[in-house]
């Protein structure tokens, strides 16, 4: 078995707080965006143990929090983990300290976009964006439009086609989008500046 440290020897963390307040800045922004104090985490690993998508992540969910505690912003924001998080909240349900990691993940995604960090999982970011575009337009998601536009954006036309046909045949994919009442209010909601970014 090789040691963990030598595997990652090239990526030694250098903490130099005296030269700048960057470390505590990340903690502060996360708390501002989602209300969670990352220092509350004591790294027991319960979140990683229960996470259904941890296997696919480049760093484990508890390490996202650990990096945030150390203020290593670039590493957190450029990870795939923050994008792969499905927001199922198993971590939050089981966390002995009551840290809502799923909210921290969300805050990190926001921060990544805000700071112009290219999402490690670009297609997921595009899906999120398309999803919100749908909601803004119709007040709810129209699956067929979402799928079509998502495929246009990612230029991946053929994956899941068979599933799509089956869903269509079973009447799961409506041809015409249904609209909700009060779409004006929804647009107003989207137009309202986000609290977190108001100072920028």
């Amino acid at each position: 078995m090789t040691s963990l440290i030598s595997d990652n020897a090239q990526s030694c963390c250098v903490l130099s707080p005296v030269q700048g307040p960057a470390g505590s800045e990340l903690k502060r922004r996360i708390q501002e965006l989602c209300g969670e104090n990352v220092l509350e985490c004591y790294q027991c690993g319960e979140c990683t143990a229960g996470c259904p998508v941890a296997y696919a992540m480049d760093i484990a969910p508890n390490q996202v929090l650990r990096l945030a505690q150390l203020g290593l912003e670039d590493e957190v924001l450029s990870s795939s983990a923050i994008w792969l998080c499905a927001g199922c909240e198993t971590c939050y349900t089981r966390c002995p300290k009551g840290v809502a990691l799923s909210r921290v993940m969300d805050a990190c995604r926001q921060l990544a976009l805000e700071r112009g960090v290219k999402p490690k999982e670009l297609s997921i970011a595009k899906f999120h964006d398309q999803f919100l575009t749908e909601v803004r337009r119709f007040g709810r998601v129209h699956e067929l439009t979402l799928t079509a536009l998502y495929k246009m954006r990612t230029r991946d036309f053929f994956s899941d086609v068979f599933t799509g046909i089956q869903m269509f045949l079973k009447g799961k994919l409506a041809l015409i989008p249904s609209l909700v009442k009060g779409r004006d209010e929804i647009r107003k909601l989207f137009a309202r500046p986000r609290r977190g970014s108001s100072e920028k």
Partner: peptide, 21 residues
């Protein structure tokens, strides 16, 4: 005039350095 502490963060599995007074 500072001291560098070379350690590791075993939770991340990585070496770590911090400059302190």
């Amino acid at each position: 005039d500072q001291l560098v502490v070379k350690g590791a963060d075993t939770l991340l599995g990585r070496p770590l350095e911090v400059r302190v007074d």
